[in-house]
């Protein structure tokens, strides 16, 4: 074995024995660097006879290429192992709790109102707003309440003075909307209502209602039933059945109480009916040509049914332990 072959063998042994990329770099410098052993062989070329020079040059280049290939191969292995090691060293306890993002939340009633609005908007209803501090006329007189009638007793009212009151029902907005309205019309309003009620698990002096009404040619009780089925189906999910029971509200005729059959039981939801022709006529609408339906229900009631809440008082109590659950 000549010097060159011995050098290559030595270099290969050293490369194979390198334990890190740093050690390998030192080996590379020792053999292939400017002052490396193989590089030094280049200087011996001048002492060789002229005819041996090309041959030696070729053998030297081949030797360098061999060593370089070994180094590159070894470097790949070492680098991969070292990267592996670094990743292992950076390992953390992935089971520690995450940093909690600062999340706000909307009130469950807001969420329910948004759901109600979204279903109604999908059915072509325009959401309208009206005052909570309402005119007596819109809350009662415009809704066909007979003057000085016991029907008023059913809704104990907060009066500010003779002409102003806190609306007892979102239906109060019907008059404001029908006045000069372009037909056909589909509207809905959602908001706060007030009645002088003793507060218990199912009554509150402050509550939220949605009132939905449409006026078009040939609107019938059957249309109302169908619209209710669609609305209730969207709100509660699944195929619901709708049932009407006659009831009395001065602003609808026929007037009904409606229930839905949902998850094995009948749930009373609210009042409904065809808008009383007296109301349509009072807004200059031809009640022969046009008819309309109206239905209403409580926002709290919807959320209670959806979530199994049994006490209405939670909604205005604002106990954060309650609010955080929705």
């Amino acid at each position: 074995m000549d010097d060159l072959a011995r050098l290559v063998a030595e270099a290969e042994a050293e490369v194979a024995g390198a334990a890190s990329t740093a050690q390998l770099a030192r080996a590379e410098a020792a053999y292939l660097g400017g002052k490396g052993a193989l590089q030094a062989q280049l200087k011996t070329i001048g002492s060789l006879p002229k005819e041996e020079r090309p041959g030696f040059g070729a053998r030297l280049n081949a030797a360098k290429a061999t060593v370089l290939a070994s180094i590159e191969a070894r470097r790949g292995d070492l680098a991969a192992a070292e990267a592996q090691g670094r990743l292992a060293a950076e390992s953390i306890d992935v089971t520690l709790p995450g940093a909690p993002p600062l999340l706000g939340r909307i009130h469950p009633l807001t969420r329910t109102i948004q759901q109600v609005k979204s279903v109604l908007i999908g059915l072509g209803f325009r959401i309208v707003d009206g005052p909570e501090l309402e005119d007596y006329a819109y809350n009662f007189a415009a809704l066909n309440y007979p003057e000085d009638h016991p029907a008023f007793d059913e809704q104990m009212t907060f009066y500010v003075d003779d002409t102003r009151l806190l609306r007892t029902q979102t239906t109060a907005l019907q008059g404001r909307t029908l006045q000069g309205a372009r037909l056909p019309l589909r509207c809905a309003t959602v908001g706060r209502c007030f009645r002088y009620e003793a507060v218990d698990a199912t009554h509150h002096h402050t509550f939220h209602q949605v009132d939905v009404f449409m006026v078009d040619e040939g609107v019938s009780m059957a249309d109302l039933k169908g619209a209710l089925k669609q609305f209730a189906g969207a709100m509660f999910g699944g195929d619901v059945q709708v049932r009407f029971r006659p009831d009395y509200f001065p602003f609808v005729e026929p007037g009904v109480d409606y229930s839905i059959y949902w998850q094995g039981r009948w749930l009373e939801l609210g009042g409904a009916g065809l808008i009383h022709p007296n109301i349509l006529e009072s807004h200059g609408i031809d009640s022969e040509r046009y008819s309309g339906f109206a239905f209403g229900l409580g926002i709290e009631r919807i959320h209670m049914i959806q979530n199994g809440v049994t006490d209405l008082r939670w909604y205005l109590a604002n106990d954060l332990r309650f609010l955080r659950q929705f």
Binding site: P184, D216, V219, D223, K225, G226, K229
Partner: peptide, 11 residues
Amino acid sequence: EKLPSGATTQG
């Protein structure tokens, strides 16, 4: 149960 079949309205 029917569905109101009149002109479409913009919600």
